[in-house]
Simulated scan of single mutants.
Amino acid sequence: MDDVLTRSVPTRSVLTHSVLMDVDTGIDDALALVYLLSRPEVRIEAITCTAGNVGARQVALNNLALLQLCGRSGVEVAVGSEVPLEIPLVTTEETHGPQGIGYAELPFPAQQISPRHAVDVWVDTVRAHPGEITGLITGPLTNFALALRREPALPTLLKGLVIMGGCFNYQGNTTPTAEWNVSVDPHAAQEVFAAYSGLPADSLPVVCALETTERIELRPEHLQRLGEAAGAQEPELVLPEQPEGQRSASDNPLVACLSDAVRFYLEFHRLYGQGYVAHMHDAFAAAAAIGRTPVQTRPATVHVETVSPRLIGTTVADFRGIWNEPPNARIVTANDPGQCFDELISSVAALARTLARP
């Protein structure tokens, strides 16, 4: 039977979600972070960084710069593993830009990277707040796999876990059968799913895979709506006929940053024949993690291929119990892209209005 996660909308600005993010920021990770910062009921406990879209230390600098842009201080940003568990690191600057945030340029952040390792942050934070923390992982699963080796009880100590990764009966975006986050560190992904085998259904990770995240197609009209909702003076027009690399002239610093980042992503998708769109995988996962967008899930037993050269990183889901093994994941099978964009735009625009230049 399908498991439905209903949308939960707080009626007042009270803390209802404590989130620990693990990211490889990344354009869509950046939007996910900004979105969570825009939600008054969300507390980001910490941000841990792994190598993926770019190197782990660049990921940390991106997160610190975005926190600074959004007027947030005091959120710990820690670097974790800088390489996958067993295979060489591959990054994807051609997808996300040399620094991971497209054409956006942010000043070097004033806040320092935490001296703690990401694994220590995961283990110490969750142990200190059992049953209160929702984990959100939008990059490779390396840090969380290492944290599980240190504290195998993490799956039951967490309130919940949401993972952006994998694809099931759906074309991959890295190889014909593999999604990027899993393909960067398939061994870590396999360890994570194995750690959840046999746990109660409501403890299993919610997996936002490509078949639903690629439905979250950001288009030029979404950026225009963001600018309008943020009260920007001029329309935010990021159009396919404009020169590549054209920078935003918005008077709103957050709108300009996101617009410059997303333009790079739009151009990348067009280059590879997907149209002038940008798949906001991680922003969808963030909204799902805090119950702000409706999703439907289905339990399955997930296996990650780690041996076959052509199939490494492939995620296979047994929905029907053919392997006779207990489920280890709840895979998102349906979502609502229109509602998700309404949520993202309205919430991020509200934050952007507070940052408008005088």
Rank of each mutant, 00 (worst) to 15 (best):
N335A: 07
W122H: 09
R357I: 11
M280Q: 10
T293D: 05
I137V: 15
R149G: 06
G52K: 02
P240I: 02
A300E: 01
E41F: 12
A56R: 05
E94Y: 13
A46Q: 11
L69V: 09
V255K: 01
S114C: 05
G165C: 06
A128L: 09
I101G: 00
L33C: 07
F341H: 08
G227K: 10
E179Y: 04
P107L: 05
V332M: 04
A285Y: 05
R270E: 13
D251E: 06
R57A: 11
D2H: 11
T95E: 06
D282Q: 11
P299D: 03
R310Q: 13
R12L: 13
D185L: 12
V206Y: 01
Y103A: 00
P176H: 13
G166K: 00
E325Y: 04
P327H: 07
N328I: 13
N53I: 02
L223E: 06
T212F: 03
V304S: 00
E94Q: 14
P98R: 12
G100E: 04
H187R: 13
L64I: 10
V207G: 01
E211A: 04
E343T: 15
S8C: 14
L37M: 10
L106P: 09
V277I: 14
H222A: 04
P327F: 10
A352C: 12
P155N: 09
A334P: 12
Q68H: 10
E151F: 08
N181L: 01
V238F: 03
V262N: 03
D29C: 11
T297M: 13
N324D: 15
T177N: 03
R270Y: 11
E105M: 11
P327A: 05
Y272T: 14
L266M: 15
I290A: 03
L89M: 10
V90W: 06
Q99V: 07
A300S: 08
H279N: 13
K159N: 07
T11Q: 15
E244S: 12
Q224A: 15
V34G: 09
Q190E: 05
F168I: 07
L271D: 11
T314P: 02
W323D: 12
T177Y: 08
R320I: 05
Y103C: 00
A201V: 15
L223Q: 05
T306G: 02
A350L: 14
S259G: 10
E343V: 13
P220D: 09
D202H: 14
L148Q: 08
L355E: 03
T125A: 02
Y103T: 03
Y196H: 06
D120C: 03
A349L: 12
A283I: 12
R298P: 04
G291R: 11
L61C: 08
E132R: 12
T177G: 01
V54R: 03
P140I: 08
G245E: 11
T134Y: 02
A194Y: 06
Q296D: 08
G80M: 04
